[in-house]
């Protein structure tokens, strides 16, 4: 399970955020001289220092039909059991949402990237990742999506979404990742 892609976890985050805002609002504001506010420059203008500065994530409501809209409102990842490529009930729920979203935006094309955990040899895992990508493709086609809108690729164990080591990372990395390749900006 990847927490950030679970609807329950997302709902919990929203509730937490609301709660903390409420806490701030009820706190009495100290009275005193108002300091002149210095505008904080955007992080990319910060003086160069040690360590890379990551570009900040886009915030706010996603553009309908965009890649970010797909990730947030359809869900881009489905997971598999060890050495399996059958679409689970849980995965089916996500793929039904993907299919419905893609039906709404007929100009959008997707690439399905099949991934595996690292507990296997390289070549076998390229084959296993291809099976997973195609299982997802077949499911989406069965839901009415045109095959011409879907490409598949296998990254085997070479592009893990979870780069830690261990069972939790392994279960995250057994996935098929649907990427919007041609969409609204």
């Amino acid at each position: 399970m990847n927490l950030f892609h679970s609807p329950t976890a997302r709902a919990a985050l929203v509730i937490l955020a609301a709660a903390s805002m409420a806490a701030c609002a009820s706190r009495p504001k100290p009275m005193g001289p108002v300091a002149t506010a210095t505008p904080t420059p955007p992080s990319r203008y910060a003086a160069p220092g040690p360590g890379a500065v990551e570009e900040s994530q886009e915030t706010g409501a996603p553009t309908p039909g965009s890649s970010r809209d797909f990730v947030i409102n359809a869900g881009d990842l489905v997971y598999f059991a060890f050495d399996r490529f059958n679409v689970t009930d849980e995965a089916r729920a996500v793929l039904d949402t993907q299919a419905a979203w893609l039906a709404r935006y007929p100009a959008v094309h997707v690439r399905i990237e099949g991934n595996t955990d690292e507990r296997g040899t390289r070549e076998y895992n390229f084959a296993l990742g291809a099976r997973r990508a195609n299982a997802v493709r077949d499911y989406l086609v069965s839901k009415g999506l045109s095959p011409s809108r879907i490409d598949t690729v296998s990254y085997g164990k070479e592009r893990p979404i979870d780069t830690s080591v261990g069972d939790a990372a392994d279960s995250h990395n057994r996935n098929a990742h649907t990427i919007v390749t041609d969409a609204a900006r």
Binding site: F85, E123, F126, A127, A130, R131, A133, N134, D138, S154
Partner: peptide
């Protein structure tokens, strides 16, 4: 589809490899 696992024949005139079509390798 995906192509991988290439290896030469002993005389170097052929390459044996895996190719995937619709998920079947």
């Amino acid at each position: 589809g995906m192509v991988f696992a290439p290896r030469f024949s002993p005389d170097g005139r052929k390459v044996v490899f895996s190719a995937e079509k619709a998920g079947d390798t």
